[in-house]
Design a protein around this nucleic acid. Structure first.
Length: 326
DNA sequence: TTCCAGGGGTAGA
DNA sequence: TCTACCCATGGA
């Protein structure tokens, strides 16, 4: 394991970073490596190139320490790059006070407000989050982890070893994905999704997709429509991407949601959508967060099926439940 | 071997 | 707008 290197900054947050990391599965995907209250990120710095960045926090604390692992001196440009990305990942500018106000009036989610839960970690770029979302469709979560991991090891740049001892690779840029051999991309586990990923990278490079424009869209329905213009992104994917862009109006209807609401597998998605709309109507633009944290209270909830119970312990306890005992 | 998963595209009615 | 069929993959 590399030693801890340059201290970059401490970023204050309006919400709990520990819960932002532990409340969902995103930090388990490359180019992240989750440690004990640490998250390593394989960053591709504009001037310094591949560099491991370590984010550190205390459970219950409201700040994230940021360090660059190794001895390489960082330029001002790289420092600014790192801080901007880390602030984005941890949603440092997000205001969840309205969500917490609703939580305080709710017997189930009252503790979310006390614990300052609600923020969910996202990737360093919107591009990366869209590609990862494409990798969640029609496959097991373990397959998603494998797909994203192989995408990084085969097309990313090697950074060094993470806290768990494994090599870390950066997430491939749109340029690299566009020029990658299509057959190789497919055989790296993406399967039929390879053409979707490659086509998306192409639209990003030629400017047909503008993430700044997505972020500026006010009406969540318009954002949904815009995102669904990407081939491979349907209603589930669009809702998921909207959530990553801090628009929580819609719940991504997947097999988990279906099971949670007590519907049999294969239930008509429109029927599911209506059920969700009825159930979370009073949460308005925070419907997804209400669903997310309500589900976390479920006794057998697991952020990462097949993963460690320790991973979700802090999050589950913070919102008022004992960890799953399966 | 078969089934299924954090779905979605397409053709045809 | 709805339905049927197809799409790779990998673990159980």
């Amino acid at each position: 394991m590399s030693h801890i290197g340059t201290r970059i900054a401490s970023i204050g947050l309006p919400h709990c970073p520990d819960l932002a990391v532990r409340a969902h599965g995103w930090p388990l995907l490359a180019p992240f490596a989750l440690g004990n209250n640490t998250l390593d990120w394989a960053a591709d710095l504009p001037q310094g190139g591949p560099t491991q960045i370590r984010m550190v926090w205390h459970p219950g604390g409201l700040s994230v320490g940021v360090r660059a692992i190794g001895d390489s001196g960082l330029s001002d440009v790289d420092r600014l790059f790192i801080l901007t990305r880390v602030r984005w990942m941890f949603r440092a500018d997000e205001n969840l006070t309205d969500f917490w106000r609703l939580c305080r009036a709710d017997p189930l989610l009252r503790r979310c407000a006390e614990a300052r839960a609600g923020a969910l970690l996202r990737s360093a770029t919107v591009f990366e989050d869209v590609v990862k979302t494409l990798c969640t469709t029609n496959c097991h979560w373990r397959n998603t982890k494998s797909m994203v991991g192989r995408l990084c090891t085969e097309l990313g740049r090697r950074c060094g070893d993470s806290s768990d001892g494994g090599a870390q690779f950066t997430f491939p840029t749109p340029e690299v994905i566009v020029t990658a051999n299509a057959a190789k991309l497919s055989s790296s586990g993406l399967g039929y999704r390879a053409s979707y990923v490659q086509e998306f990278a192409r639209t990003v490079l030629d400017g047909r997709v503008s993430f700044d424009e997505w972020i500026r869209i006010e009406n969540p329905l318009d954002l949904r429509r815009k995102v669904m213009e990407i081939r491979g992104i349907g209603p589930y994917g669009a809702n998921h991407i909207a959530m990553l862009l801090s628009r929580y109006d819609f719940v991504p209807c997947d097999s988990e949601v279906c099971a949670y609401l007590g519907f049999p597998p294969g239930t008509d998605p429109k029927k599911l959508e209506r059920a969700i709309e009825r159930r979370y109507r009073r949460w308005g633009k925070y419907a997804f967060l209400a669903f997310k944290f309500e589900r976390m209270r479920q006794r057998n909830y697991r952020v990462d099926r097949g993963g460690s119970l320790d991973y979700l312990r802090a999050a589950a306890q913070a919102v008022g439940v004992s960890p799953a005992s399966r």
